[in-house]
Design a protein around this nucleic acid. Sequence first.
DNA 1: CGCTAAGCGGCACTCGGTGCCACCACCAGA
DNA 2: TCTGGTGGTGGCACCGAGTGCCGCTTAGCG
Lengths: 187, 187
Amino acid sequence: MPVARRLEDVALELFATQGFDETTVDELAVAGGVGRRTFFRYFPTKLDVVLGELDDGLAALAAVLRDEPGDDPVVAARAAFLAVNHYADAELPALRRRLGLIEDVPELAARATVRYRDWEQTLATDAAGRWGTDPASLRAQVFGRAVVASMRAVFSAWHGRPEADAAALGALVEEAFDALARGFSSP
Amino acid sequence: MPVARRLEDVALELFATQGFDETTVDELAVAGGVGRRTFFRYFPTKLDVVLGELDDGLAALAAVLRDEPGDDPVVAARAAFLAVNHYADAELPALRRRLGLIEDVPELAARATVRYRDWEQTLATDAAGRWGTDPASLRAQVFGRAVVASMRAVFSAWHGRPEADAAALGALVEEAFDALARGFSSP
DNA sequence: CGCTAAGCGGCACTCGGTGCCACCACCAGA
DNA sequence: TCTGGTGGTGGCACCGAGTGCCGCTTAGCG
């Protein structure tokens, strides 16, 4: 098992049992069998042990979005999110642990939203392309940010339902995009 | 001038000239004429010097929202945001400085979004009340988060237009809420 | 076998943030 | 006037995250 992977495992384990703030980088390094200095070579900050995978998701999203046809950004974004968030059952427990940490540790939630900025801009640019408008236009920006915010709501809701499976996640994504498509003034 | 106010002033000044990360708390304390320890009595973190006022805004929002009649949450939220974000011309330069910092210092952007969580829940609860549904329902949660995300887009857009005044801010708020009300699938 | 290059990790340092405690001013009451 | 709180202050020591530097080991290669 590669060093980074092992560090990630022991870190999530320690965070789950002791808490994030109560676990020092020294402990993580010792538990992972490396020096403290080496830990920081694999992860720029302690936060990144938890958030590491988000960037891969962005790359995947951008790729799917690029190949998605049609001129309705909502349809395209929905398809992209359904494709990207297709988890195998075996991955769900780890996903739950990560989401739990991101929910309860404010510092992690904060850092996560910084990562989401790129998602927002990717979505805004895609929408602008389909609408034939400027990516910097307010409508495109509102779209990008609202979509990401909705996905946060989806993950939060999914995490709040302990028995929800991968299919339930998809259903929530559908529901969220329906709301975005129809707007909030219609009943 | 009270100590907190003075610290805030010199801090924003130093941040603007030297940069946020390049300014240490020691410098802020010296510039404000207090000890480092005293600085932390007025502001729990360095970030809070910039973000301090957000909490007042939340209280104001909640108050306006509570008194707002009608059963359309979009209408109520729009009215509330227009009321809360009514700035005098003299306040605009300070607002711009703050927004600029929040925009380009990732750590500040991150911390700001944590504050926004309360706004999101306030809006979700209000919407659920008007709809007669559960505040934890996905639709209410998506609404609350989408609204806050849209307001971030509004402030970002306003900050990006150097000549925009207070009226322009109101117009952007209107435009963003129109998008949310009508949804993103309609042209 | 010797050389080099890359990963590793110890060490010392900076900075944000906290707990503790001494100091000072101000104000009460005797 | 003296005395005894009391709240604001800030020095001091400490912790943990993160960084630069540098010496060490080890693997690969001529």
